[in-house]
Design a protein around this nucleic acid. Structure first.
Lengths: 198, 198
DNA sequence: GATTGACTTGACCGACCGGTCTACTATAAT
DNA sequence: ATTATAGTAGACCGGTCGGTCAAGTCAATC
């Protein structure tokens, strides 16, 4: 009774791209369907609302960041602080690449939606808060490893991880606003020097 | 031949409040007019478009930040790094206050619009980039004073000011996403320890 | 007191919004 | 072969969007 279909994925990918390239409000359901090659009826067969779809899209953003940025940075068998440094380099290259391809710095898909929707769509705000938490924990894990190795001392790893994530998002916001990837190159490496003591 | 009128200011103040409380896309021209007690015709007499109005609103956001936050922090005759520290404290109290009054952390009005519109409205992106530049210069001035006093050495004041502003925006974004002012209290003071060396 | 022009009024526009609905198709289970 | 159902198609809905416009009001100028 179930026909296999890639429609759901097509919708997700379409929304992923369009929302990242502009904003939640600026991308209509009709555009998402058109870009996916799908009719509106199918859209609402798979997703009860645009907000629901966006929460699903957010999860794919997280998976991408986790795999393509953090996972990539951890592949080299380096000290944890070096791996953190890797992250900043990978992000720079990614932002630079999208700038070359689209002419624009698109920023962070999570931060973009966080600032746009946190006050008007509670389920989305909550979803993003949850994702930020998981990213923070990835940072924290690296900090704890560095602590065990004796690379850092007297540090509040949880608060420092949160501070690093905040700096990360802030730098990317500035790069997007100036539409200049070099902002990332100049500022983001300093992320690994942030410390919040106990 | 010119009748004095507070209509323009009423529109500006209305838009200021409504856009800060939600977002650019979520606030219609009709809502702005209604909240200002003004008819649509008057709106388009004073402002050629919603985008133009928003650029004027952005300038008022800057003036407010400059006067009510930076100006306030500089009133006490303290060492420059202490004055920077003051800024973080004032911002915490402000965010905490809006949370108490509205139940929500509204974040930074500049950062909010920066992430929402930088890729879709070039004049607005440019306006925000300009404002960020001026804020960065305020930070830089304090860093240079600190340098002259010998409080800090071997520092790239321009890059460090940019990094501090980025961290500032990032922390406020996280507070908004978590809808928790305590994030600001815990993370923002570390802003003054950020250094980017030459 | 006639003229000028800044300002106000509110009806109106086409386009688009998110979402609904009914009819239809295709396939898998019986 | 019949039935059940997941998925597709696309017309349609009321409401809202940013923006326009013609008509009018009012005060300052001459």
């Amino acid at each position: 009774m179930n026909r296999p279909s890639d429609t759901q994925e097509r919708i997700l990918n379409s929304a992923r791209e369009l929302i990242y390239a502009s904003s939640y409000a600026d991308v209509g359901v009709a555009s998402i369907c058109e870009h996916a090659g799908v009719k509106k009826g199918s859209f609402y067969h798979f997703f009860p609302s645009k907000s629901d779809l966006t929460r699903a899209v957010l999860e794919t953003y997280f998976i991408d960041i986790k795999e393509r940025i953090i996972g990539q940075a951890l592949m080299d068998d380096l000290p944890p602080l070096q791996q953190l440094q890797n992250i900043t380099q990978i992000v720079y290259e990614f932002q630079k690449q999208t700038k070359e391809q689209t002419g624009q710095i698109l920023g962070c898909p999570l931060g973009n939606l966080a600032t746009e929707l946190s006050t008007t769509d509670e389920p989305i705000r909550n979803k993003i808060a949850n994702i930020f938490q998981r990213l923070q924990e990835s940072f924290q894990l690296l900090l704890e490893k560095a602590h065990e190795r004796g690379d850092i001392t007297d540090i509040n790893t949880e608060a420092t991880a949160a501070a690093m994530l905040a700096y990360f998002e802030g730098v990317i916001m500035m790069a997007k606003t100036r539409n200049d990837a070099e902002v990332v190159k100049q500022l983001l490496p300093a992320m690994v020097n942030i410390r919040i003591t106990q």
